[in-house]
Design a protein around this nucleic acid. Structure first.
Lengths: 220, 220
DNA sequence: GTCTATATAGGGATAGAC
DNA sequence: GTCTATCCCTATATAGAC
């Protein structure tokens, strides 16, 4: 399994070097170097939050818990994030950006089963590589929705909304749309619903088998 | 408190049938009830809670909101339920009981694809008939898990746990287990993930097509 | 950047009148 | 069965020292 069962205090090298521009980070020490020393506390906060949000849910997790597991105090968190929601938002950006990219290729024309197959394959790969963040997302839909509403983005290009949008397209035959939805469900179940049941398999094995089933669902 | 509650698991039939404003609620046979128009408040609380818990999440919903929408005060709720968790528990029992029944036939022997197919078909039917409660369940996994832990039941026979238990059975070939999980994902996606995208189809149409895909996934 | 201490709000829950 | 009023606790968030 690609997921490391890391110890709470330790930094895990995930994939999160890219969300800097998204949330207003408090400007670190202005100007002068002094940089290298400590490994991003901000990042460590996000790591811990990701775990706790997944285990207990966003609402079920208090800042005190996050701080405790991190070995700091609540107040310290507020140096790095403006609010609790801000932490959730930072985590959310990863999936959001991925969704943007994944659906980029899609225009306004009705989607074909072939296009969809390629898209779902891509989603499957990403989900396998970023299992944790997807799990967190799945288990905190309510909180994330609220977040989304408050952010008056006017842009509902969340991955789920995009999905539904395509699946509701009346120009595509219903039978095709049901197949499309089902194919997503296949990916979904393999990673989320199954829990730890498939840890014995490598991501590659799992991925290839899922893709086979997906193909079967779409074109079988 | 001297709770005069009837047994939580039995008194509540479903909730969805009543959105046709059915007045056939079994009023306790207490002789003279002048207010014949008044339908079981307990049931109305559950109806409202089901909606709000689904929309906003369990944690995101306050008793004040439930009471407000119902036109009563918070305190009134406590006549019908011991706690907020009790409301969630009452809603949970419906799925729980279904899960008990659905998995009843399964013993300790490794499950076959055929058995699984029958089970998933049954789940699909139930999900279609009780969409709302399944949606609520899906969107409040964290809260329900917590509830489950606190419930001293020592019995973890939740439907999801049963599912995972079977899917982790090492005596069943991995390829089969992946197929099994995928088949559940198909049902799941058709009902939950798709949102309102398939409202144009009747439950029968949707159900039969889902079953076809499921069959394909398991045996294709 | 992190701490101690505190402000403030909201939510769950109870008491007791009606 | 429902109401008013209140208690209590936890959680987010802030102020200011170090």
């Amino acid at each position: 399994m690609a997921q490391t069962t890391e110890v709470p205090g330790q930094g895990n090298q995930d994939d999160e070097q890219r969300l800097a521009a998204s949330v207003a980070a408090p400007e670190p020490p202005s100007g002068i170097t002094d940089e290298a020393t400590h490994v991003d506390t901000r990042q460590r906060i996000l790591d811990v939050a990701l775990d706790l949000f997944t285990e207990q849910g966003y609402d079920g997790t208090s800042l005190r818990q996050i701080a405790e597991r991190l070995g700091v105090t609540k107040a310290a968190l507020y140096y790095h994030f403006e609010s609790k929601e801000d932490i959730l938002l930072a985590l959310h950006m990863r999936i959001h950006e991925f969704g943007q990219k994944a659906f980029l290729s899609m225009g306004d024309e009705p989607v074909t089963l072939e296009q969809w197959g390629a898209l779902v394959d891509e989603i499957a790969v990403q989900m396998l590589a970023q299992r944790k963040i997807f799990l967190m997302h799945e288990r905190n839909q309510a909180a994330l929705e609220k977040l989304h509403n408050e952010a008056h983005d006017a842009e509902h290009d969340d991955i789920q909304n995009k999905l539904r949008q395509v699946l509701a397209d009346p120009r595509v035959p219903l039978t095709d749309r049901v197949r499309m939805a089902a194919s997503v469900g296949v990916v979904f179940s393999g990673l989320v619903l199954s829990g730890e049941a498939f840890d014995e398999a490598t991501d590659e094995e799992l991925g290839s088998q899922l893709r086979a089933i997906i193909h079967n669902v779409l074109f079988g």
